[in-house]
Design a protein around this nucleic acid. Structure first.
Lengths: 252, 252
DNA sequence: CAGGTGCGTTGCATCTACTGCAACACTCGT
DNA sequence: ACGAGTGTTGCAGTAGATGCAACGCACCTG
């Protein structure tokens, strides 16, 4: 709606692809160099863009700080984290927490046992929305029309032969998930990875987040993973309870 | 430099403090509600801002994705990571990697042994710049005038009795660090935590990053930690070599 | 070293598009 | 039902964003 701001913000994803110099930015925005310069300067003042040693702009540090703080205001994450850790300790597999926002599902927390994994490789990245178990749960809870509209808009990449192929199949799957109150992804994203997931609900019963346990075939079979379902659901319910009940919030 | 963009971007830190509604945003920007609305809409279209259930704006998902991608183009991190992991495996303590950018020092990687720690609690957050060992190394390498100017501008919070108290002391410390080629922080940030750090240099010899090993007093004394210095320096040098030499980059 | 090319940067006249106003629509609360 | 507090829309006026052309500067190249 605001042209100037729109142009300025378009620079960010552009720089996310890699550093670029003034000319390149101007070209890709379709504006004069002087215009691009002023936009970049403004972004720079706010720390969103950084001018590295020789020419070339790149995304700046403030971006991390902002993403940081944004995360910290997500109270579901705050509440869920200890539960996720405990679940991880008892089953040993990777545990994810995800939320839905603006036609995307994204991981907001992750606990993996063995190594101190590079969490940032997943956290913040959009989820494979048509196949991930957490995505199914989050989308299944959307109002009917919204769900349909979204299903139509999505792409259905065939990550594997078991990926969801089209809107119809997806909507059917969502309906099933909606009824049973939990979801799985059995090799739909990566051939050898299975997940089971359960929803976290707010006081009004709406799904505010979803959590999952993932493990590769070689460690546990899909059937064995399914035996964890009760534990996952119990954990999710515990988080739901804490999130929706009157809790720490008031005490501060 | 560009008023409209400037105003729009000012909304982000404002929302980072917590969700706010249209009126609050307009007030704090000092503009009319309709103006604030259009700015917010533009931010919204770019996914930087999210409108939650009803009313109240908050920082949006795209922010994570951007921060994400920004991280991924930091090639030092890419190269350094396996070395950090190996160092961690051999000594067991927390290992950090940090860079200097625009008057700030920030952690861009961290490896901790025991638990899969919530890395985001540190990564992306600005470092206590006047006391952290990595900060000393990064600042010590700045050109004289820049270093002086920065030292004057900084605050010198007394985290502990051993924190750097003022610009003069800081500059002296930087000089020392500069000469010896490594740095420590012995209880300057938190009474019981010590660090040793070493610089990572680019092909031109300039410090591009710094890494450190930290451990609490109760696990190893400062003296014991110092025995790790050679190992830390060797690791840093290995990273420097790989970063500055002709390396994988060409092979892709 | 003179001349050339490719950058980023600046000042300025033009006119776009951003602003604030005032009126409207809507949801609550009492 | 009504008023207070929201968010939202259309519009006229002008602040401020735009693109141009000229300049400065570093780096090649003959």
């Amino acid at each position: 709606m605001s042209q100037t701001v729109d142009r300025a913000l378009s620079i960010l994803p552009l720089l996310a692809e890699g550093p670029a110099d003034l000319g390149q930015v101007a070209d890709r925005l379709g504006v004069h160099k002087s215009t691009a310069l002023r936009l970049l300067r403004t972004l720079h003042e706010h720390g969103l863009v950084y001018r590295q040693s020789d020419q070339h702009y790149r995304l700046g540090a403030r971006l991390f700080a902002l993403a940081q703080e944004a995360m910290e205001n997500l109270d579901v994450r705050e509440i869920a984290h200890p539960h996720l850790v405990r679940l991880n300790e008892s089953c040993g597999h990777t545990v994810h927490l995800a939320v839905y926002e603006e036609n995307e599902v994204l991981y907001i927390d992750k606990v993996e046992s063995r190594y101190p994994v590079r969490m940032y490789s997943r956290i913040g990245k959009p989820v494979a929305i048509t196949v991930a178990a957490v995505a199914k749960l989050l989308l299944a809870d959307l109002p009917e029309h919204e769900r349909r509209a979204l299903a139509e808009k999505l792409d259905y990449p065939m990550y594997t032969s078991r990926s969801t192929p089209n809107p119809a199949a997806f909507l059917r799957e969502l309906e099933k998930v909606r009824e049973q109150g939990w979801a799985t992804d059995l090799g739909g994203h990566e051939e050898s990875i299975n997940c089971v997931a359960a929803p976290i609900r707010g006081a009004d019963g709406r799904v505010v987040a979803a959590m999952s346990v993932s493990a590769p075939n070689v460690v546990v079979t899909a059937d064995e993973l399914l035996t964890l379902l009760p534990l996952v659901r119990r954990t999710a319910d515990a988080i739901s309870g804490e999130y929706s009940g009157r809790t720490p919030a008031e005490l501060q």
